[in-house]
Amino acid sequence: MAGKIRQMIDLIIHQRAKNNPMLERVIKTKLMLKGVNPKKFDMESPDDPAILLKLERMMQMFK
């Protein structure tokens, strides 16, 4: 399977930033500090379970 990481990154940015460019930058920085560089993932990227776990946790905690 591929592309799930890209989808989740986009979802997290959309969910948290709500089209605010300043918040988008902050969230991308937080992702990079977690070791997830948004620029490195596209719809062809394999679904790495360790990265998916980090992203799922990030989504779950922001409620």
Binding site: K30, L33, R57, M58, F62
Partner: peptide, 11 residues
């Protein structure tokens, strides 16, 4: 600090 960043958008 990573968990705090996950919980909120407040800096």
């Amino acid at each position: 600090i990573e968990s705090i960043g996950d919980l909120t958008n407040v800096t």
